[in-house]
Simulated scan of single mutants.
Amino acid sequence: MRHDALNRRTVLGGALAAAAALGLGGCRGADWYPSEISPDEYLLRSAIAEKQRLIARYAALLDNGRSTDPELHEAFRSHHERHLAVLRERLPEHGGGEPSPSASPEARPDPDERGLRVAEEAAAANRLRQLGEAADPALAQLFAGIGACEAGHAHSLPEA
């Protein structure tokens, strides 16, 4: 019996300590963010850049004729293009521009099938992280749906 009470005390004590740490940490939510771009917009821009890289990778694979399953790869590219369109619609209209796929060293597509599964798995993992960081529940839900699709892609592709 004493063992149960100790566990409850430990849990309650840990929760109180975490709440105190958050309170003393000075985090006041999104209103403290020192930029014109909100944390959610930053997440959106990151997802958009990643989508552009995935689309470029599929396009290079298809354009070079190195795809072993062109119908599947074209369908997956189409999914990413639809995701990209929805993500772009969510961007605020304050003229901040849009990320470019060439903004990153990983942007140059590797035109072979090796690594597509890994890229899809990484994208799904990023969506999971992003949905946990999103302040807007609708944005979190969008990231969850896109991540589920990416996880399905990864499952359907051969291992690298």
Rank of each mutant, 00 (worst) to 15 (best):
A17L: 12
A17D: 05
A18V: 14
A19G: 09
A20S: 04
A20K: 07
A20I: 07
L22S: 14
L22F: 12
L22T: 13
G23D: 04
G23P: 02
L24R: 08
G25Y: 01
G25M: 02
G25V: 05
G26F: 02
G26C: 03
C27Q: 10
C27G: 13
C27D: 15
C27Y: 14
R28L: 00
G29A: 00
A30E: 13
W32V: 13
W32C: 07
Y33W: 15
Y33D: 09
P34F: 01
E36N: 10
I37F: 10
I37P: 03
S38N: 07
S38H: 05
S38F: 04
P39T: 10
P39E: 03
P39W: 04
Y42H: 14
Y42G: 15
L43D: 00
L44S: 02
R45N: 13
S46A: 15
I48W: 02
A49Y: 01
E50W: 08
E50D: 14
K51G: 05
K51N: 10
K51D: 06
K51L: 13
Q52N: 03
Q52W: 01
R53I: 03
L54E: 00
L54G: 01
L54Q: 03
L54A: 03
I55Y: 00
I55F: 00
R57Q: 07
Y58R: 11
Y58L: 08
A59C: 03
A60L: 08
L61G: 06
L61Q: 06
L62A: 10
D63M: 15
D63S: 15
N64T: 15
G65D: 07
R66Q: 09
R66L: 06
S67G: 08
S67T: 13
D69G: 03
D69R: 12
D69P: 04
D69T: 08
P70R: 07
E71D: 15
L72V: 01
L72S: 01
L72E: 01
H73V: 06
H73R: 15
H73L: 03
E74M: 13
E74V: 11
A75E: 11
A75V: 09
A75P: 01
A75C: 05
F76I: 14
R77E: 07
R77H: 08
R77C: 06
R77V: 07
S78M: 11
H79Q: 15
H80E: 14
H80N: 12
E81V: 13
H83D: 05
H83V: 02
H83F: 01
H83Y: 01
L84F: 07
L84T: 08
L84I: 11
V86L: 09
L87M: 03
L87Q: 00
R88Q: 14
E89W: 07
E89T: 14
E89G: 12
R90C: 06
R90D: 09
R90F: 08
L91Y: 08
E93P: 08
H94K: 08
H94P: 05
G95D: 02
G96P: 07
G97E: 05
G97F: 01
G97T: 08
E98L: 15
E98G: 10
E98N: 11
P99R: 10
P99T: 11
S100D: 14
P101N: 05
P101F: 01
P101T: 06
S102E: 12
A103K: 11
A103L: 13
A103Q: 13
S104F: 04
S104T: 10
P105R: 00
P105Y: 00
E106V: 04
E106C: 01
A107D: 03
D110L: 12
D110V: 13
